[in-house]
Design a binder for these strands. Structure first.
Length: 925
RNA sequence: GGCGCGGUGGCGGAAUUGGCAGACGCAGCGGACUUAAAAUCCGCCGAUGGUGACAUCGUGUGGGUUCGACCCCCACCCGCGCUACCA
C-alpha cells in the first residue's frame, strides 16, 4: 500500500470525515447486552446562540474521554441536547420582538452546526430539547407525580423576588454578598406570595452521604455546606400566656445564660405577645422589615435593630421570666424563627444586649487558654505566678495579664506558641532587647489601671512597628480576638447553671439535652440550612405547571391524559416583563377535573432546573410517548457512569438532580440511590487578560474562527494541553501554535517517507519500543484520571523520539510500524479527524474509531538501565548508570566508589548509608 | 467572619504522591536552509559566581519532622471560589 504524500489541510479533511461518520452512524449507541455499557454525559448547554470557548473546554475533553472508553471496549452512549427553556429567550422577545420559540430553535440550529464542527461522537438520534412538547409533557407528568406523593406543595411565604426578571427565584439562585439574581445580577427583594415548592429538605440527610458516588471532594464540600446540618437541641419556652415557643440552638449548654428571646419580625406569635403599649412600635418595625430588601439590611452594616414586644417568656430550665424582642437578625426561614439569646456566649446576642441594655450572664467558666504542651512546663498550671521552660521562654502573671519573655534568638521559633497566649491580655518581651509587643487595647487598659509605670513607658517608648519586628507585629495584630476560644465548651466547665453547674465542658451539651428530655421541655435536634425548592416562575418560556385552581375543589392536577399543557403561541410581551400567560385572554380558562365547573390554570411555569433534573433520562428514549423514558433503555444504560460539567452547578443543578432521582426512586420510577456515579468538573477558560471571558470586556475567543484557522483537531488538542482540565486557565493565542506545530509534525512523520536502506541498529528499535510502551502506559493512566494535559505532553514527547529514531534509520522497521499504529490509536480520541485520515492513508481498515485501545507490552516498556542518584547528606552529587536489577550492596559500593562522592566525603567515614532500591543512594556523614 | 481551593522559571504548566525540581509547550536567544521572509529543522534557555568543568542558592513566608520535603505537621501572608446575622 503506497502512502500519499500531501499536505495537511484540516478544512478539507474534517468536514469530509464528519460527514462520513454521520452517514455510517459509527457513533450510534444501541443496547447491546454482550458489551459493558458506559453512559458518558456532558452537561447540556443553554441555546444562547453561540458556542463559546467554555463549551469547547467542557465538551471536547469529555468527548475524548468517551472515545477512549469506547476503544477500551465499552458500549458508550454520549448524547447531547439543549436546556432550551429560560429567560434569555423571553428577553430577546421583549427587546427584539422575536418569539422565544423562534429565537431558541434558530439558536439550536446554529449550535448544532458548531457542535458538529468539533468532531464529537454525539449520537444525535438521542438529542433531547427541553422546550419540545414531547419533552415537557413528561416534565409536567413528573410534577404531578411529585404532587400526588406529597412532594410538591403550595405555601404562602416570603420568597426571593427578582424585580428585573419579574419572577420568584429559588434560594439557590440568589447569589453573593449582595444577594443578587443569578441571571441578571439585580438585588432580590422579599415578597409574600403563595408558590409551589418541592420537598428537597426531606432528603437533606440522605444527600449528605456521598458513599455510593465518586464525586470530587470540592463538590461534596460545597453540597455539605449548602445543606448545612447543625446538631443541637430544640427547646420549648413558654410565653406568659402559655403559648409554646420553640427554639433551635446548637448550644443548649448555655440555656441558663439566656437573658431574652428574639422573634423574627414575621413570626406568628409576635402579634399575640405584643402589649398594647408596644403595639405601635412593633408594628412599625414589622412594616419596615418587610419593605426592606436583604441588601438594605446589609447596608446598615449589621448594626442590630429591634423592638421589645412587651411580652415575656419563661425559661424552662430555671423558670426565669425573660423579655421577648423582635429583631431582623433572626430569620423566619431558618430554624423556628425564634431564638433564645445568650449574650455572654454569642457575639450577635452580645451586640444586641449591649445596644439595648439587656443583662449578660456567663454560664461557661472562662476556659483555659493554655493549649501547647511544648512550652508549658509542669509548673505552668493554673494559678502559676511564673514559669520558665528552660528553652528560652518564660511566662509570668502581671497585672492580671500574662507576660511572656523570649530569648532574642528564640523569637522565630516560638512565635507560633506565643500567638496562642496572645489571644488574650498578653504582652511579649524579648529578653536582652528593648522590644516589647503589646496590643494597643492592652495599653489602653493599663493606662486606666494600676499598671507599672515603668512597663507602660517601655511599651510606649519603643515603636512596635520597627522594621525588624514589623512582620511579627503584623502577625500578632491579625490574630482574631479570643471569642473562638471562649465559645468552645470543651474547655472550662458550666457555672451559674443550677443542677448542671460544674459539669465539665466536654459533657455540657449532652447533659443539658438529657435534662431537657427528662423534663419534657426539649430534645436533641438537627437542623438544616437547605430550604425546600421554590419551583414557580412567573414567566412564559417554561413548562406550564399542570395544575388547575377551582373555587370549590381547590387545586388539582391536570388529568394525565390531557398532558401536555401546551404553551400558547399567541402571546404578547409587555416591557414590564409580566407573564404573558397571566395576561392571555383565554389560555387559563379551563374546567375543573373534579367537578367539571369553570376553573383556572396555574399561570406559572416551572423553574428550568426542573427540566434539567431529568434530561439524562430523556436521552434514553427522546421520542418515547408511553412514559418519560423506555424502561428497557433505562435498565441497560442507567445510571450515568461519567458526568462532566462546571463546578458552578454544585449547589444548584447537582443538588436538584440528586433530589429528583431520590424522589423518583421513592415513587418507584427509578432505581438505585444516585443518578450519576462519577462526576468530574472542568475549570474555566479565562481570557488572555486573565479575566473571565465576557462580551462586555471584549476578551472572548471565538472558537469558529480558530477552527477555520487551525482545524478542530488543533483546537481540541490545545484545549486539552494548555491547562489542567479541572482548573482551567488563561487562554494564550500564541500557545495554540504549539499544538498546531505538534499536529503538523505528526502529519509529516506519517506522510513523508524517508530513504530507508539498512535495518536500524538493535538499540534504536529497542529504545523506540520502550518509549512507545512507556507512553502508552502513561496515556492510559491519564485518560483514566482525566489528566488530559499530560496526555498531549506525552504524545509530543513520543513524537520527538520518533523523529530521532527516524533519523537513526528506524523508518519502515517493524518497531516503526508498530509505533505508527499505536500512535494513531492513542491520538484518535484527541484528534479524531487526523487520526482517521492518517489511519486510512496507512491503508488500515476503517474506522480507527472502531479499533481497540492498544495493549501495553510491559516487557518492552521495561528500563534496563537506570541512572542511580547518589547523594551526600541529601544533596545530589553524582548520577551513575547501572543495571535496574542492581542490589543494594552493589549500589552502595558503586556510589562510594564515585570520585565526586569521595571528594565530598573529604575523607570522613560515612555514618549511615540509605539505599532506595533501584533509585538512589544517600550517604550521611 | 466561616468553609474550600490554590501559590513552582518571563508565561501556561510537569514531578510515579517523601527520592534527579522545572517534563511538555509558549515566548526569547543562537545556528542551518532561503536572494529574502514565512514555514521547517538543530541547539541554548531558574538565579548568582566562574572562560570553564563546577560551586552556591532556589517551589509564597517562618518554624518543625526526616538520611532526604514542592510533597507531611504547626503558624502566618497573598490570590481565587463559595457562603454569610444559620442561632
Amino acid at each position: 500500500m503506497s502512502k500519499k504524500n500531501y499536505s495537511y489541510n484540516p478544512n478539507e479533511i474534517e468536514p469530509r470525515w464528519q460527514q462520513k461518520w454521520e452517514q455510517d452512524g459509527i457513533y450510534h449507541a444501541d443496547i447491546d447486552p454482550s458489551r459493558p455499557k458506559h453512559y458518558a454525559l456532558t452537561m447540556l448547554p443553554y441555546p444562547s446562540g453561540d458556542l463559546h470557548m467554555g463549551h469547547w473546554f467542557a465538551m471536547t475533553p469529555s468527548d475524548s474521554r468517551a472515545r477512549y472508553m469506547r476503544m477500551k471496549g465499552f458500549n458508550v452512549m454520549f448524547p447531547m441536547g439543549f436546556d432550551a427553556f429560560g429567560l434569555p429567550a423571553e428577553n430577546a422577545a421583549i427587546q427584539r420582538n422575536i418569539h422565544p420559540k423562534e429565537w431558541t430553535y434558530a439558536n439550536i440550529e446554529r449550535m448544532r452546526g458548531q457542535l458538529r464542527s468539533m468532531g464529537a461522537m454525539y449520537d444525535w438520534r438521542r438529542e433531547a430539547i427541553s422546550s419540545d412538547p414531547k419533552y415537557y409533557h413528561w416534565t409536567q407528568w413528573f410534577f404531578i407525580q411529585l404532587f400526588k406523593h406529597q412532594m410538591a406543595y403550595r405555601k404562602d411565604s416570603a420568597v426571593d423576588w427578582c424585580p428585573n426578571c419579574n419572577t420568584t427565584l429559588a434560594r439557590e439562585q440568589v447569589k453573593g454578598d449582595d444577594r443578587v439574581c443569578e441571571r441578571c445580577n439585580t438585588p432580590v427583594i422579599k415578597k409574600q406570595l403563595e408558590q409551589w415548592f418541592f420537598t428537597t429538605t426531606q432528603y437533606a440527610e440522605e444527600m449528605l452521604s456521598f458513599e455510593q458516588i465518586d464525586w470530587p471532594e470540592r463538590v461534596q464540600t460545597l453540597q455539605t455546606n449548602w445543606i448545612g446540618r447543625s446538631e443541637g437541641a430544640s427547646v420549648v419556652f413558654e410565653s406568659e400566656y402559655g403559648d409554646p415557643m420553640e427554639v433551635f440552638t446548637t448550644r443548649p449548654d448555655t440555656l441558663w445564660g439566656a437573658t431574652f428571646m428574639v422573634l423574627a419580625p414575621e413570626h406568628p406569635l409576635v402579634e399575640k405577645l405584643t402589649t398594647p403599649e408596644q403595639h405601635a412600635a412593633v408594628h412599625a418595625y414589622q412594616e419596615q422589615a418587610s419593605r426592606q430588601s436583604d441588601i438594605d439590611r446589609e447596608s446598615a452594616e449589621r448594626e442590630k435593630t429591634g423592638v421589645f414586644t412587651g411580652g415575656y417568656a419563661i425559661n424552662p430550665v430555671n423558670g426565669e421570666r425573660i423579655p421577648v424582642w423582635v429583631a431582623d437578625y433572626v430569620l423566619m426561614s431558618y430554624g423556628t424563627g425564634a431564638i433564645m439569646a445568650v449574650p455572654a456566649h454569642d457575639e450577635r446576642d452580645f451586640d444586641f444586649a449591649i445596644k439595648f441594655g439587656l443583662p449578660i450572664i456567663p454560664v461557661i467558666e472562662n476556659p483555659a487558654k493554655v493549649i501547647k504542651s511544648v512550652v508549658m512546663a509542669d509548673s505552668m498550671k493554673e494559678g502559676f505566678d511564673k514559669a520558665v521552660d528552660g528553652n528560652g521562654i518564660a511566662v509570668e502573671k502581671k497585672y492580671g495579664n500574662l507576660l511572656i519573655t523570649l530569648d532574642e534568638d528564640k523569637v522565630q521559633e516560638y512565635i507560633n506558641i506565643v500567638q496562642v497566649y496572645l489571644k488574650d491580655n498578653c504582652w511579649v518581651e524579648i529578653a536582652g532587647s528593648p522590644w516589647v509587643f503589646v496590643f494597643p487595647e492592652t495599653i489602653e487598659k493599663w493606662e486606666s489601671t494600676e499598671a507599672d509605670a515603668r512597663i507602660l513607658a517601655r511599651c510606649k517608648e519603643y515603636d512596635p512597628k520597627v522594621a525588624a519586628f514589623r512582620s511579627v507585629m503584623e502577625m500578632l495584630n491579625s490574630q482574631p480576638a479570643y471569642q473562638d476560644v471562649i465559645y468552645h465548651s470543651e474547655y472550662g466547665k458550666m457555672i451559674n447553671s443550677g443542677p448542671l453547674s460544674d459539669t465539665p465542658g466536654d459533657q455540657a451539651v449532652q447533659k443539658t439535652i438529657q435534662l431537657l428530655e427528662e423534663r419534657g421541655t426539649g430534645k436533641g435536634a438537627v437542623n438544616y440550612r437547605l430550604r425546600d425548592w421554590l419551583i414557580s416562575r412567573q414567566r412564559y418560556w417554561g413548562a406550564p405547571i399542570p395544575m388547575i385552581h377551582c373555587q370549590t375543589c381547590g387545586v388539582n392536577p391536570v388529568p394525565e391524559d390531557q398532558l401536555p399543557v401546551l404553551l400558547p403561541d399567541d402571546v404578547e410581551w409587555l416591557p414590564t416583563g409580566e407573564s404573558p400567560l397571566k395576561l392571555h385572554p383565554t389560555w387559563k380558562k379551563t374546567t375543573c377535573p373534579v367537578c367539571g365547573e369553570e376553573a383556572e390554570r396555574d399561570t406559572d411555569t416551572m423553574d428550568t432546573f426542573m427540566c434539567s433534573s431529568w434530561y439524562h433520562l430523556r436521552y434514553l428514549s427522546p421520542d418515547y410517548d408511553q412514559g418519560p423514558f423506555d424502561l428497557a433503555e433505562y435498565n441497560y444504560w442507567m445510571p450515568v457512569d461519567t458526568y462532566t460539567g462546571g463546578i458552578e452547578h454544585a449547589t444548584m443543578h447537582l443538588i436538584y438532580t440528586r433530589f429528583f432521582h431520590k424522589a423518583l426512586r421513592d415513587m418507584g420510577i427509578t432505581e438505585g440511590h444516585e443518578p450519576m456515579t462519577q462526576l468530574r468538573n472542568q475549570g474555566i477558560v479565562l481570557g488572555e487578560d486573565y479575566e473571565k471571558m465576557s462580551k462586555s470586556r471584549g476578551n472572548t475567543v471565538p472558537p469558529d474562527k480558530l477552527v477555520e484557522d487551525y482545524g478542530a483537531d488543533t483546537v481540541r488538542a490545545y484545549l486539552m494541553f494548555f491547562a489542567r482540565w479541572d482548573l482551567g486557565g488563561p487562554w494564550d493565542s500564541q500557545g495554540i501554535e504549539g499544538s498546531a506545530r505538534w499536529l503538523r509534525r505528526v502529519w509529516t512523520a506519517f506522510t513523508e517517507p524517508v530513504e530507508s536502506g539498512a535495518e536500524p541498529p538493535e538499540e534504536v528499535s529497542k529504545a523506540l519500543r520502550r518509549k512507545l510502551h512507556q507512553t502508552l502506559m502513561a496515556v492510559t493512566q491519564d485518560f483514566e484520571n482525566f489528566e488530559f494535559n499530560t496526555i498531549v505532553a506525552a504524545l509530543m514527547e513520543l513524537m520527538n523520539e520518533m523523529y530521532k529514531a527516524r533519523e537513526q534509520g528506524a523508518y519502515g522497521s517493524p518497531a516503526w510500524l508498530e509505533a505508527e499504529d499505536v500512535y494513531l490509536r492513542m491520538m484518535a480520541p484527541i484528534a479524531p479527524h487526523m487520526a482517521e485520515e492518517l489511519w486510512a492513508n496507512l491503508g488500515k481498515p476503517y474506522s480507527i474509531h472502531h479499533q481497540p485501545w492498544p495493549e501495553v507490552d510491559a516487557e518492552a516498556a521495561r528500563e534496563e538501565e537506570i541512572s542511580l542518584i547518589v547523594q551526600v547528606n541529601g544533596k545530589l552529587r553524582d548520577k551513575i548508570t547501572v543495571p535496574v536489577e542492581i542490589d543494594d550492596e552493589e549500589a552502595e559500593r558503586i556510589a562510594l566508589a564515585s570520585e565526586t562522592v569521595q571528594r565530598f566525603l573529604e575523607g570522613k567515614a560515612p555514618r549511615k548509608v540509605i539505599v532506595v532500591k533501584g533509585k538512589l543512594v544517600n550517604i550521611v556523614v
